[in-house]
Write a protein that binds this DNA or RNA. Structure first.
Ligand SMILES: [Mn+2]
Ligand SMILES: [Mn+2]
Ligand SMILES: [Mn+2]
Ligand SMILES: [Mn+2]
Lengths: 218, 218
DNA sequence: TTTTTATTTTAGGCAAAGCTAAATAATATT
DNA sequence: AATATTATTTAGCTTTGCCTAAAATAAAAA
């Protein structure tokens, strides 16, 4: 359980996000990290020497088992901290991600365990994303896009994609939150928008909004 | 309010610890940081270019007003996090310092403010050290060493020095905690130890223990 | 199957932050 | 006042992590 730099951990996380345990191209990784390809070539070479990834030049980079383990551990911390920030400190769900990017690099197994307990052993973070367990197991990824339901379905919002500030602003102004339940009133054959209704009235959700909001059928 | 590296912040903190706003020698700083003098010479040169310190070669390094401001901000974070770890997560007061060393570098004014509120606007950390206010004001440094009291005084423990693991272990085995109250039963003219009594009995505190435990008279 | 284009790697630089060894300045001792 | 000792700085080297420009490789188009 040696210790890694913040940069290393960010590469591991990016690789997991992009490909899980599958190979990822230099270009995709560079884009995600926000660095030039040449920097990425060097970085993954370093990770390779630590056996966190397998590198095949010109072909791609792939997390090793140990790399995947580490990625999940970081993701666990990220999502636990997001949960803390929202549930305990009252941050809005749209503002916690950058903070969690910092907090996810704090090194202490004990801290993670205690935080987990303090938060009531949560399975999902404030956006509905699954929080990896201590042993690396992943709780289910909940829900289907709102566009996947049909008229008459009763649904509950269980997850939202991190689709940027404007998306979260839109959720806010439309008063849409995790846990809200709606009835699917209609679906537009023209623009793939969906009409939802609740006790407080009804409204239309654009195709783009639908694609980033996930729900389960009740 | 630009952003600083972890190393820079550690130098600032060390300078504040060693000299406050007074000059500090290269050697002392090197010792505190745990680096060689030559590394320190370079580091403070960098800090000087950012106007966080004034450097007089061969003479010493001194925090600027901005440097002091930053030092206090970091100390505030350090002590708030320690309070969080003990009060909310149930860590022992002897184990939180290294964790706070990491957490103190998280950058977010908002997080600090919310944490402060969440903790009930504390004035002192779990060791009784004052937590700098938002504006840099310092709450009082509480108490006098236990050796300073005389027979018959009723006292309350309000602060302990960070004197290492063994010291904290000793406090634990003797069941001494912040807030405990005692009567000074006797003071030894031979070895400067002090006899304290409470409802649960009486015991002798060595000179070295006394020097690191601070109390107020009731 | 060439040729062109896009992707990736190499080569060479730079800044931060550490190190060792050598030079220099400041103190202390005779 | 001259010398020896200690403290500090300089010089030169290392690793991490980023960059640009050029070379090499792979993929796509002709
Ligand atoms: Mn996030
Ligand atoms: Mn990160
Ligand atoms: Mn501390
Ligand atoms: Mn620190």
């Amino acid at each position: 359980m040696k210790t890694h730099t913040e940069s290393e951990e960010n590469y591991i996380k990016a690789l997991y996000h992009l490909g899980g345990d599958q190979p990822v191209s230099n270009g995709d990784l560079a884009q995600r990290i926000g660095a030039k390809g040449s920097s990425v070539t060097q970085a993954v070479k370093r990770l390779g020497q630590k056996d966190l990834v397998d590198v095949v030049p010109y072909k791609g980079v792939q997390l090793t088992a140990e790399g995947v383990r580490l990625a999940k551990a970081i993701l666990r911390k990220h999502r636990l901290w997001e949960t803390f920030l929202v549930d305990k400190l009252g941050f809005g769900w749209e503002e916690v991600h950058p903070l969690a990017e910092q907090l996810e690099h704090i090194q202490s197994e004990e801290l993670v365990d205690r935080l987990f307990q303090f938060l009531g052993s949560p399975k999902h973070d404030p956006h509905g994303d699954p929080i990896p367990e201590r042993d690396g197991q992943m709780p289910p990824v909940l829900g289907q896009p709102v566009g996947a339901f049909v008229t008459g379905n009763e649904i509950r919002i269980v997850r939202v994609e991190d689709a940027g500030t404007e998306f979260f602003d839109q959720l806010d102004t439309m008063n849409i939150n995790l846990g809200n339940t709606y009835m699917v009133q209609a679906t537009s054959a023209f623009d793939a928008s969906v009409q939802l209704s609740s006790t407080s009235g009804s409204f239309w959700l654009s195709k783009d909004m639908c694609a980033n909001i996930y729900a389960i059928r009740l």
